[in-house]
Design a protein around this nucleic acid. Structure first.
Lengths: 198, 198
DNA sequence: TATTATACTGACTGTATGGTCAGTGGTCCA
DNA sequence: TGGACCACTGACCATACAGTCAGTATAATA
């Protein structure tokens, strides 16, 4: 049973992280000032420092939370799809839609601002789980003869890289097509490559 | 005939831009302080402001110069290749090798720091020429029946996005394979997709 | 209701740094 | 040789902002 205290405390933490996400997305990490985060959260700046050690900690909290949610979401949709084709598409679509729904977060994460070293070091770890799921699915499909034999893990990373590249372009020049269309276009490109010679 | 004055002036500008590239790459834009740029260039800080209006201007000079050089290089190699396969590979390899050779610049450009808005707005324009060359080459090859018919420009952008994604990964986790190998791996993935059904 | 404990506030501090400008020294011409 | 010119210098200024902490409001307890 959580005490009233704990509930309030968690509420504040969440409010701060939410506010920080908005401010960092709007201005970037360096120009996203703590006074503004406080204002956005409707509290005094000092209060933030009751919950977080530093600006950097707040940044990490934003990144960690969103990244975990995104990866959970990706893995879930990937697992739910029956075929390999569906799984690859699910992976791509989950990333694209998330980028759409949470432009804020993706702008931060994309721009790699803030504790750069931290972001860099974490990036591969964050992505590892969904990518490895994808790789396993590809391995199994290859054994069933559905796709050609290819190095599953590098290829899965390649697909992740492609998706990321497309997301970045869509953030830069306002997305022209809906995520579904973009996912289909990507699949049109990827699938022949996986099945060539089959 | 350039006057002695002009020569010295150009020399200084270059020295400043070179120093700025190093410092910004080392620390990022925000933390790359002008005192350090001056020190790196072996001049006083005030001198920088004789040649550039602001820190932002210096940043733009770094980006513009490097971007133009990179694109010139890409187009040149692309044009030199005889076949479409060669052209696509040349495009990828040029980007990869440049990223390798000028990690500094790519770290800045990748991290999108500095005048963010500027970088974002320019990015598509910068890439447009090489990408459109690639698209034309693909169109021609499609007409010759070498590859399947597909929307050339979106596909060319996709290849550019893929390449960028791979470059980013190689910057994050120290590149394990030489650029040539990576280019081949990418081609193994891309080419079947372009020729599927042929 | 009085007392203690706890959460919160926001004015303030210290520092970092972009940009300035009065002064210096070297160069060139008369 | 003198002096006008100007590229260059670096101490200095103004500002912005992360983080602090003495003080206040609110809630819990007796």
């Amino acid at each position: 049973m959580r005490t009233k205290q704990q509930v309030v405390s968690e509420f504040r933490r969440t409010a701060i992280v939410d506010a920080a996400r908005i401010v960092f997305a709007r201005r970037g990490f360096a120009a996203g000032i703590m006074d503004e985060v406080a204002k956005e959260a409707g509290i005094a700046k000092g209060t933030i420092y009751l919950y977080f050690r530093s600006k950097d900690e707040v940044y990490k909290a934003v990144m960690d939370g969103d990244m975990k949610a995104l990866n959970r979401n990706t893995v879930q949709k990937l697992d739910a799809a029956p075929s390999l084709h569906g799984k690859v598409r699910a992976f791509i679509l989950a990333r694209l839609e998330n980028a759409e729904a949470r432009k804020d977060f993706f702008r931060i994460m994309d721009s790699g601002q803030g504790s750069l070293a931290y972001t860099r070091k974490q990036y591969r770890d964050w992505l590892r789980e969904p990518v490895q799921r994808l790789a396993s699915a590809m391995d199994e499909a290859a054994q069933r003869g559905e796709i050609r034999r290819l190095p599953a893990e590098p290829t899965a990373w390649l697909i992740a890289d492609m998706t990321r590249g497309v997301i970045q372009r869509r953030l830069i020049s306002p997305a022209s097509d809906p995520a579904e269309t973009e996912a289909d276009r990507l699949m049109d490109f990827i699938w022949p490559s996986l099945t060539a010679g089959k």
